[in-house]
Design a protein around this nucleic acid. Sequence first.
DNA 1: CCTTCACTGCGTATGTCGTACGCTAGTGAG
DNA 2: CTCACTAGCGTACGACATACGCAGTGAAGG
Lengths: 245, 245
Amino acid sequence: MPDPVPLPDEIALLWGRRESARRGPKAMLSVDEIVRAAVTVADADGLAAVSMAKVAAELGKSTMALYRHVRSKDELLMLMGDAALADPPDLSGMDWRTGLTTWALSILATLHEHGWFAQLPVNGPPIGPNNLAWFDSALGALTDTPLAELQKVGIVQNLITFVHGEMRLGRDLQRSYDRDPDRFGPDYGRALAELIDPVRFPALSRVVSSGAFSGPEMIGQDLEEDFRFGLELYLDGVEAFMRRS
Amino acid sequence: MPDPVPLPDEIALLWGRRESARRGPKAMLSVDEIVRAAVTVADADGLAAVSMAKVAAELGKSTMALYRHVRSKDELLMLMGDAALADPPDLSGMDWRTGLTTWALSILATLHEHGWFAQLPVNGPPIGPNNLAWFDSALGALTDTPLAELQKVGIVQNLITFVHGEMRLGRDLQRSYDRDPDRFGPDYGRALAELIDPVRFPALSRVVSSGAFSGPEMIGQDLEEDFRFGLELYLDGVEAFMRRS
DNA sequence: CCTTCACTGCGTATGTCGTACGCTAGTGAG
DNA sequence: CTCACTAGCGTACGACATACGCAGTGAAGG
């Protein structure tokens, strides 16, 4: 029998394998409960509202009690990042393209319920069980293609990159729109139009005067449509690449 | 003569058009200086180290002096976001594909010098002069193509989405690698390999056992190469779309 | 059974943060 | 000259993360 897994303890925590205590009083708190409470707070009031005090209050415990189960707030945020990802969709039976499309839209939908996800600090490669499950799911969609394993990884990783960009821009824009729709109103657009000097910004000016920017059409469903458009373009590229191979 | 631009004052600030005072002592501080100092602090010690106190200390002034020029820290962060973007590259004379590739790599290079950019909160559509200059630059690369203006916007916006994803994942990974290379070392990989159950993660397991994940090859130049690969795929898709039109 | 002591939960304290408020002193319009 | 207005700043407050140490609990070892 080999050594019993010298897991870096951060990973052990992520996978629920931190050794539990053998002595002392029964724990009234668990890491799972804490993470769930933190997610609840974040869903309700945003990531900025997640403080150790608020999370503890949500559980009816004192602030410092959390530190027995979680080494720091950063660690809690890391756990939240994995917990936000529910199970990936079942892609079996789909061709690779339908599979990846379904996958991308699913992860966006999942993260739409946890709008704070995009604001989590990235402190290392995603390594939690749910994260890996999603990664596996996307790779699985490419199983029956003639690509080399390394190429599959590259293609999926770029897809993830694209999705993260969408989260950062699209979702955050959506949130700021909900908070203050005036920023997207006609007053704003008109004020902006005066700033866009046709000499300094020729191409942009052409777009604006063509009427493409007159209203809040960069928001809401148009945003998802835009994402689908980009996704299609990317997958067209992947398809061409596969034919070339 | 029409009304003299009722600019939302946040935008006025961004464009350096906040009306200056007519009475009172000469200002010893300017918005520009403050933003420059904040960027200096962020470049040196990261975005988390940017506090009003530190920025003021950098300028040899007291904390509260900053608030005469900047309404809040959020406003300062917004200004930093625009200031981080230097001038876009000159793409004239390039075909659209070379132009967009140059553009994407340039913006990544620019933001590499300001690694904190990806962590700035997104509070609205990018609207600062430098931001618009980059947007205009990318649109300009598509001038001589047969696309409709709205399609150009969509293509550029998706490219921006992709670049933002790269910033979030790639650059932050790079940073965390620099801080703690052990997290990418062989110990880590071996520990991870034990967690990847072939039944639960079939596709991922296949990749790992094919040796694609043995080392820190997702980092550094391989990361940029990966980005280029994804960019090529996307642009292939754009090219096909243009032929179809 | 009793002792031991690792462990949980929590109260207190420290240092940092953003920023509201009001003061002082300098300035230019009247 | 006057004085409304302004820049910079000192103080204060509430929120935050978290180090530290204490008190009580209950399984392990005798």
